[in-house]
Amino acid sequence: MAQPPIVLWTAKAHLTSDDACTTILQYQLASPPSATQAPYYRPPSAPTLSYVPPLVYFCIKSLLGYPDQVYLLGPARLLYSQPTGGHDFDILQALIPTYRPFSPNHRDFDLRVVDPRLWAVLAQIYRDLPTAFREYTLPLSDVHLPLLQAIPSTDHFSLITVLSLAKCRELTDDTVLELRHLHTLAALDASVTALGTWGVQRLARSLSWTDGDEEQRPERRGPWGLRVLYLRDCINVDDKIFGSLSSFPLLSVVASVPAIPILL
Rank of each mutant, 00 (worst) to 15 (best):
residue 69 Q to K: 08
residue 7 V to Q: 12
residue 17 S to D: 11
residue 78 L to G: 14
residue 6 I to V: 03
residue 56 V to E: 14
residue 8 L to A: 00
residue 71 Y to I: 01
residue 28 Q to D: 05
residue 80 Y to W: 08
residue 27 Y to S: 05
residue 71 Y to K: 02
residue 11 A to I: 06
residue 58 F to M: 11
residue 80 Y to I: 02
residue 57 Y to S: 13
residue 48 T to C: 08
residue 16 T to M: 09
residue 43 P to F: 06
residue 56 V to D: 14
residue 75 P to C: 03
residue 13 A to V: 12
residue 40 Y to S: 08
residue 26 Q to D: 10
residue 74 G to Y: 03
residue 75 P to Q: 01
residue 40 Y to H: 04
residue 16 T to R: 14
residue 55 L to D: 11
residue 30 A to Y: 10
residue 43 P to A: 03
residue 9 W to A: 08
residue 58 F to A: 14
residue 50 S to E: 03
residue 66 Y to G: 00
residue 70 V to P: 04
residue 49 L to C: 00
residue 14 H to S: 14
residue 67 P to S: 13
residue 46 A to T: 15
residue 36 T to C: 05
residue 44 P to M: 14
residue 58 F to K: 13
residue 43 P to K: 11
residue 19 D to G: 05
residue 31 S to A: 14
residue 74 G to T: 05
residue 79 L to R: 00
residue 22 T to D: 07
residue 51 Y to C: 00
residue 24 I to F: 05
residue 21 C to M: 07
residue 32 P to K: 11
residue 17 S to G: 05
residue 13 A to F: 14
residue 13 A to T: 10
residue 42 R to L: 03
residue 82 Q to V: 00
residue 16 T to D: 10
residue 32 P to S: 11
residue 46 A to Q: 12
residue 79 L to W: 01
residue 64 L to C: 04
residue 76 A to D: 15
residue 10 T to Y: 13
residue 33 P to K: 06
residue 18 D to W: 01
residue 50 S to H: 02
residue 7 V to N: 07
residue 69 Q to H: 08
residue 53 P to H: 06
residue 41 Y to P: 03
residue 51 Y to H: 00
residue 54 P to R: 15
residue 34 S to G: 07
residue 36 T to F: 01
residue 83 P to I: 01
residue 38 A to I: 04
residue 53 P to G: 04
residue 64 L to Y: 03
residue 44 P to R: 08
residue 7 V to M: 07
residue 46 A to L: 15
residue 23 T to V: 13
residue 72 L to P: 10
residue 41 Y to F: 13
residue 80 Y to T: 02
residue 56 V to H: 15
residue 34 S to R: 09
residue 70 V to C: 02
residue 39 P to F: 01
residue 71 Y to G: 01
residue 68 D to C: 07
residue 10 T to S: 15
residue 52 V to H: 09
residue 38 A to K: 02
residue 24 I to Q: 13
residue 50 S to P: 01
residue 63 L to C: 05
residue 56 V to P: 05
residue 22 T to F: 07
residue 35 A to C: 06
residue 19 D to S: 10
